[in-house]
């Protein structure tokens, strides 16, 4: 992977982390579907999740609510980024193994 790509990854993930740092100050108003569900009185139909890992974007066991929210955002960023990069890597690897690359410069 060329140097340019490393820059994109670092800057892109950096922006995502900065956005996550703002998450504790996100609007606390009910949003689209929730507002409609309240107004039209079907909010009560919602069922609780069968298990909880990081519910409400609040990292469990962290006293400070803002820190807990930011921490949950960072955890999420790491997981989804790993899935995205992992998938792309896997696709590249299988393509190379199958010899089906139309991108001779790959790698």
């Amino acid at each position: 992977m060329s140097k340019g790509w490393l820059g994109i990854i670092v800057v892109g993930l950096g922006i995502a982390v900065i956005v996550a740092l703002f998450s504790p100050w996100a609007s606390s108003h009910p949003d689209g579907l929730e507002k409609v569900a309240e107004d039209k009185e079907f909010i009560g139909e919602a069922e609780d999740a069968p298990y909880e890992i990081i519910p409400d974007y609040t990292f469990p066991g962290v006293e400070n609510e803002k820190v807990a929210t930011i921490l949950s955002g960072l955890v999420g960023i790491v997981i989804v980024a790993a899935l995205g990069f992992g998938f792309a890597f896997l696709m590249k690897a299988t393509r190379r193994r199958n010899g089906g690359s139309h991108n001779p410069g790959a790698g």
């Binding site: 996100a26 960023i77 980024a81 990069f85």
Partner: peptide
């Protein structure tokens, strides 16, 4: 080739962006 590294970056940005209720 250009899409591959962007997938992880986009996933991260969209996840973070979805936390910001405006």
């Amino acid at each position: 080739e250009k899409a591959a590294p962007l997938m992880g970056v986009l996933a991260a940005f969209i996840f973070a962006g979805q936390m910001i209720n405006f």
